[in-house]
Design a protein around this nucleic acid. Structure first.
Lengths: 223, 223
DNA sequence: GCCTGTGAACCTTTTCACAGCA
DNA sequence: TGCTGTGAAAAGGTTCACAGGC
């Protein structure tokens, strides 16, 4: 039985990148509020839960449309639904994880991955010793089959948890196979053509940024 | 024997946050260049390796000082050293990981953590079944001892890999014990006083951002 | 009275374009 | 000539402050 097509965002004012990056925060905050069966929420409260300020919340939400009620606030369920739709969380996104080492394994076991439409449908690795092992209800398959697997399972999002040295190569193969979103955990830049999104998550980078500010605080305050 | 104090950054023009966030990229790019024993590198080449544009590289590096040579480029070793100093990578930062679940374990095993001054010196968990287990040359200790451990080992950076529900609580205890930098892997906002830095790494958020752009591409291009 | 929605002001960041120097 | 360093312009993002509607 065919599932009714998700209508997707109704209008398309350009939503600023910075706003897009905060929508997941609002989404989570709303889920939290919804659990305590509160029907309505103010920008102030939402801001507090999301760790931003109220003006930003209002501005951000105004890009999606006028979903609030003056003098009252935002209807939790309605806003939740609108943000979910905007973020594409009402769809199902099959995900492949490539590189089943330390991190890949942790990601494979991570619940809450599937929580919102992201369904891990393939684990791939190049190491013959790892191929064939099972994690949850998935068995690791050879990265050589990447192309076929991506096509067959309609994988749109690829998670890269491979060593930096091969990250670009794997990314190229993913893109060639039809993947259009990549989440790169390897400490390397990966170049992709237009029309493909990459986001990078890098432990070393984050620590180094913390270290910078740590150092500045530690130093005697020269003027 | 006391270690000679790191002189730290020589001057202190305010370095923009956006620039600080890119210094680690340049650092890595320079390490890469250095491996092929190239003595000098242009902003163009550096930009390519770091995945940014050349103007940005020059502007960013100009905040650190005039470390390049017109008509030639930047001396790889010299620049590497300057960035390392600016980022505080010439110091040793003891790190504690709290929450030794899936992710915490992956982080504990992650090599390259120690690569640049970040030395994991404590693994903490609340679960008695996990406490006592060893990973590498560290044994998991009870989170109840957090305060003592942070103080004794001079821990400045804490990595949070605990469930969202307890993240704020653990963060509070870390801060009370003297931690001034927190890397938060849990899907929750954590509020800290001024003078403490927090950076957040969140898988769900990243996937949702990718999903947003994925959706926009997938939709028929309504005008 | 209260809280959203939003122009306008402000600040940060990026990009441009070229002067300055090896 | 070649590539850095940097003012100035442009773009992007945040905050303010208040009009607008419940």
């Amino acid at each position: 039985m065919p599932v009714a097509a998700d209508p997707g965002p109704a209008e398309r004012p350009r939503i600023p990148e910075a706003t897009v990056a905060r929508l997941p925060l609002y989404y989570r905050a709303l889920v939290e509020v919804g659990e305590s069966s509160v029907a309505t929420v103010s920008s102030e409260r939402l801001a507090e839960l999301a760790g931003v300020n109220a003006a930003k919340v209002r501005k951000d939400l105004s890009y999606l449309g006028s979903y609030g009620t003056r003098g009252v606030g935002y209807d939790v369920d309605y806003l939740l639904h609108e943000i979910a739709r905007e973020l594409g969380l009402t769809r199902d996104w099959p995900v492949a994880i490539v590189g089943i080492g330390n991190l890949g394994r942790a990601l494979a076991n991570y619940r809450g991955f599937g929580a919102r439409g992201f369904r891990v449908v393939a684990l791939l690795d190049a190491d013959p010793d790892v191929v064939g092992r099972s994690f949850g209800d998935l068995t690791v398959e050879p990265v050589a089959d990447l192309d076929r697997i991506v096509t067959e399972r309609g994988i749109a999002i690829g998670v890269l948890a491979v060593p930096a040295a091969v990250a670009q190569d794997v990314a190229d193969r993913m893109v060639a196979a039809g993947v259009t979103s990549i989440l790169n955990f390897s400490p390397s830049v990966c170049v992709v053509p237009d029309g493909v999104s990459v986001r990078k998550v890098d432990l070393a980078t984050e620590l180094q940024i913390l270290s910078f500010y740590q150092l500045r605080r530690a130093l005697p305050g020269r003027s």
